[in-house]
Design a protein around this nucleic acid. Structure first.
Length: 109
DNA sequence: ATTATGACTGCAG
DNA sequence: TCTGCAGCCATAA
């Protein structure tokens, strides 16, 4: 993938406000790369710059990090800290999913 | 060139 | 809810 694509993904991730989350597929789509959810995961893992990685969850609203892992716990902790609506270990996407439509119209892509 | 392995997803069964 | 499986695509071996 090109640097432009990586940059597009990072830009989308950085635009997610605290208290909201986005799924891998959602980020990919917003970055103009529909169907490339795996690339989002790749970027998060290899990102050299700081990113709000904890605001990215899978399509089921759960952390995609291995259960019991250090990162998993940290993610859940950060989400709770930002008061993201959850039910057990799942984020309630219906309430917390990042919908940038309006912001993009106001801010410009 | 081929195969295996991911911070993924949607659609069955 | 859970398991498979086909798409997905960059990387490493």
């Amino acid at each position: 993938m090109s640097d432009k694509e990586v940059e597009a993904i990072c830009r989308v991730i950085r635009s997610i406000p605290a208290g909201q989350v986005a799924t891998y597929g959602h980020v990919a789509k917003l970055a103009g790369l529909p169907g490339r959810a795996r690339m989002v995961g790749y970027v998060l893992r290899h990102a050299d710059q700081p990113l709000p990685w904890h605001r990215i969850v899978n399509a089921q609203g759960r952390s995609s990090l291995p259960a019991g892992s250090e990162g998993r716990d940290k993610q859940l902790k950060l989400l709770a800290q930002e008061k993201v609506p959850m039910m057990g270990d799942r984020v309630l996407l219906k309430q917390a999913l990042y919908e940038p439509d309006l912001d993009f119209l106001l801010w410009g892509s």
